[in-house]
Design a binder for these strands. Structure first.
Lengths: 190, 190, 190, 190
DNA sequence: CATGAATGAGCGTTCATTCAT
DNA sequence: TATGAATGAACGCTCATTCAT
């Protein structure tokens, strides 16, 4: 339809993320959010049925965006390690650029709102290149253990790296990226 | 007169952790907490000045407990790798046994209550065996890079492992522990 | 949208004065006040930020009204005594007609709320015709002593007179007014 | 009987007056009062049945003290004006020395507790030398009008004088006392 | 679509009073 | 008598949501 101002909806989403980043999920107050957006509290309800709807919808939107990012340019004829590195760096940049979104997701997961998320969305785990991992195991270049463990390690170092960068303890440049990826590679390689 | 039941304070702390684990920090409702403990809401205020005091005090208590655990049996004449492993496993068990406490700490950190934590408590970072890392670098058995990065990797894998165990995706036995520690070791070793 | 009913604020003020007159300042209970006004307790907070704001604002409003009343028609070419009498009677009528407001002011002054009154408002003492007193002293018709003392006596008799009238021990008519003013005049005249 | 520690009761009364003087009657919090006295809250209830009992009893006690003071040394063979002056000064000193008690009385009178005061106590109006006034009217030295009006004027100037002294705007010495009494005398004399 | 006013449900907290020793 | 713990009954206030325009 698009009768409603789509830009306004985006503004609401953005300010919501800002608030959650600043004060946590409990900091979302409809009146404050409205003020931040520059609209009336009641106008919020034109775009979202209620607070829960706002949070659940935003959660779903973000998850879907993340799915999109992880799905592209999987196939190249580069060596395995390089392909994994490219992918990892892609996630790293995504994480750094979307830290507010990531924080929102994490906070919702430990809030009572999480039970309201449709299971369909919950199930959509970031596949995180499972195919790639399988290929690596077949080729014998990474440890032959459960994918979950590989995923755990890769994403653990990923999110810690993002945190270091955001807290300015680490600057995002090629040297540091290489350094951090070497942890990943050394951890999982055979 | 009635004697102050010290166990009651502990009961309050415990139920608080339960609530935060179940519903997040925003789920702490003084009335509900009181009911869970089996006392009157106003009795809570005999033990804590107010909600903020409850959260801040509990936070402080937990941090101090964590400090204690990380400080013992540092010196052995075992090989470096084994000593690091022992320490890592110790943290792993602590994390698994105190997952509610850990979750509480994490949630407070992203809540508005965090600014109320005395800076003294904030500064008490778990040193996490910095000395051990220095020694490893001197001996040339682990990468010669900033300690923060080593710490980041080690604790990243640690917390992911805890999560896997708690979510029953991984059971806590020697084989799995070894597997996960091998990630750690391979990641940081030279 | 609904338009803000300015009369509602006035109604809140009025009922507040009623309550303070009946039960004292400690008798102001937001829920009761709301019921008296015929609105929901939370609606009170649309008009006043909180209880303190209500009391302080009302105090300020009343003081400003009093300032207005004392400032008019100072200059006439009547004899001094007559001019003073006119002024005194004016205050008397004001006091009788605004006894609830006066009572409110007095009660706030001996309550912990008084420290919250902006000093600007506190400073605005009813000048109470200081100029007139000066003139009287110059002309030699009233005692040549500090204005504060004259003011003290004049207002002391004034407020006692108001009390007598309100308690029906004295009815407000010309004869009684004359009688009471004669006390004033005899007290201060040379 | 005197089984209970009479000194402790006096301490309670005194601290109550202090509190009312500092914060008003609404400032009486049983727990705070107990702390001020240096006893446990529950001990208060050994001496007074409840808060109302405390306030009503203290009110009654003070009123009775005031009665006592006004009743002595009425008859002298001094000139009328001098006798009135002596009495007025006596009251003035009483007022200055017992300002906390006076303030307490005034505050109770405009509080909901006043309806709980036994009417017997309420009726005990400080006679304030009615006999003396009658004598003055008979001798033709003071105005021949209702005693209530004389009393009103005399006590009005009295309480204003006390206020001036307490607020340090006027110091309590013979000169100032004379000045203020001259207002009284000039006001009521024929 | 947009809004500011209005509100009910509920929350954190206080406090006079009682309990249990 | 004396007390610290315990509590129920409020009270002030917040906030998601709806009303009325």
């Amino acid at each position: 339809m698009k009768l409603k101002d789509e830009g306004k909806k985006r503004a609401i989403d953005e300010k919501t993320l800002d608030i959650v980043f600043d004060k946590g999920i409990a900091g979302i107050k409809m009146a404050v959010l409205a003020k931040d957006v520059g609209i009336s509290p009641s106008t919020l309800y034109v775009y979202y049925k209620n607070k829960e709807d706002l949070i659940v919808s935003l959660f779903t939107t973000i998850i879907k965006e993340q799915m999109t990012i992880s799905k592209n340019e999987n196939q190249l004829d580069l060596p395995f390690k390089l392909r994994l590195k490219k992918m990892w760096l892609q996630w790293l940049h995504f994480g750094v650029n979307n830290y507010k979104e990531m924080g929102f997701i994490e906070q919702v997961k430990q809030s009572p709102y999480y039970v309201k998320i449709p299971s369909k969305v919950k199930e959509e785990k970031t596949e995180l290149g499972v195919e790639l991992l399988e290929e690596g195991k077949l080729k014998g270049v990474i440890k032959n253990i459960e994918n979950e463990l590989h995923v755990a390690v890769i994403s653990a170092i990923l999110s810690q790296t993002v945190k270091l960068i955001l807290s300015k303890e680490l600057s995002l440049n090629e040297k540091n990226s290489d350094k951090m990826f070497s942890f990943v590679w050394d951890a999982i390689k055979t």
